[in-house]
């Protein structure tokens, strides 16, 4: 499914949308940035509560499809600026991380 389709399916808040047609093929949950870089798959939706600007750089390097800030977390101004600069899809959801991951798993039909 595309990032745009994921936004509709999970009613995600859009902070910055640079590549709406990018495909999402899986998910990853984590707040430790090096852990994310080591483990997140390419084209994943990355769920995190980290909202500093390094998140944009990690998303770019790890080549994830989008970042979803969970728990209603808002990006700080620098993260928003960096997401724009680096063309990172930056989204948000009010649900807690566990609920968000479950919803993501359902819409992506990831085997439970």
């Amino acid at each position: 499914m595309t990032v745009q389709e994921l936004i509709s399916a999970l009613e995600l808040k859009v902070f910055h949308l640079a590549q709406p047609e990018r495909l999402v093929t899986g998910g990853y949950v984590g707040d430790l940035l090096s852990w994310v870089m080591g483990r997140a798959g390419q084209d994943s939706a990355w769920l995190t509560i980290m909202s500093n600007q390094n998140v944009a750089a990690v998303a770019l390097m790890a080549d994830v499809a989008c970042v979803i800030l969970t728990e209603g977390v808002q990006p700080d101004a620098d993260l928003l600026r960096r997401a724009e600069e680096k063309e990172v899809n930056l989204l948000g959801i009010g649900a807690d991380t566990f609920a968000a991951a479950c919803q993501l798993g359902q819409v992506l039909s990831v085997p439970q």
Binding site: L32, L33, V55
Partner: peptide
Amino acid sequence: ELGFGAGMGLPN
């Protein structure tokens, strides 16, 4: 605090 220092840099 910024999410680094997990001891994964060189291993990654």
